[in-house]
Design a protein around this nucleic acid. Structure first.
Lengths: 145, 145
DNA sequence: GTGCATGCAAATCCTTTGCAGTGAT
DNA sequence: ATCACTGCAAAGGATTTGCATGCAC
């Protein structure tokens, strides 16, 4: 799918979500969505905020955080808490669900998929009678090891 | 294994570790180790610190954090970053490695084991040529779901 | 005796909150 | 016209740091 088409659909999904949840469709929210879907990396809130400033969008940190929360709720982005002061976000609409392998030396992030992860969440949900809408799997290692 | 025997071995392992890493064997470090091995829960640094205060051990937060770090390095405890301001520790010597399922509603923590987790870490290590000494798997769900 | 570890408090980091003003409905 | 959303700056909580003192070696 083309990048523009993906963004168009993401905007539509966000718009629908805001409507359903009686949230106002502000310019700021959509500017932030656009910015995120232009990026292809694992970014943090500060670098997103900095990029806004640099492009002369007068958007506050509070709004960045509020919008990231909304986008997370409607699953247009995913958030990964890689460590205490190390939260990272990435766009998720139109991409495969995946997990992360992080190098403890150079902080390189590798994405991987393994069907067994889903099997585990399903099985544990059954065993303990939990509905499991979300999980976090992060492998920490040394590259070239 | 009896609790006292487990603690005795943990103390010995800690002592050896400190010696090998040229760290001083202070009273504070061993008092903290004892305190942790008396507990059977997933605790945070503040509750450990509070318990010290309550028992009239004059130990500072700095020392609590320093010692937790050392105990983590020598694998006598494990640390789980359940969310940004939500780190939890538990003793790990003499216990099976396990992962966690957390209820988003009542914060209940369930421990589980699944051999597929280890298979995944091994496989990804092979594929990406990483040495993977550590990982984190946390499932977030709703109980009674 | 030397100098690393400790206690204390201030500093730090990311994130959240309070408030007054703005703009979406 | 309403009142939820925004920008700004100050507050917040967990953890780290700096410095003077004390204790392990």
């Amino acid at each position: 799918m083309k990048q523009e088409e993906l963004l168009r659909q993401a905007r539509q999904l966000f718009s629908d979500y805001l409507e359903q949840h009686h949230q106002r469709k502000t310019t700021e929210k959509f500017v932030i969505l656009d910015e995120i879907y232009l990026r292809n990396d694992h970014f943090d809130s500060e670098s997103l905020y900095a990029e806004m400033k640099q492009k002369n969008f007068n958007i506050s940190r509070a709004t960045v955080y509020n919008t990231l929360e909304l986008l997370k709720e409607c699953r247009l982005i995913s958030k990964h808490q890689l460590g205490k002061n190390h939260a990272r976000f990435e766009k998720s609409y139109g991409f495969w669900q995946h997990d992360h392998l992080i190098c403890l030396d150079c902080s390189k992030v590798i994405e991987f998929c393994d069907p067994r992860v889903h099997q585990i969440t399903t099985r544990m949900g059954e065993i303990f009678h939990f509905d499991i809408p979300h999980y976090s799997l992060i492998l920490y290692g040394h590259c070239q090891g």
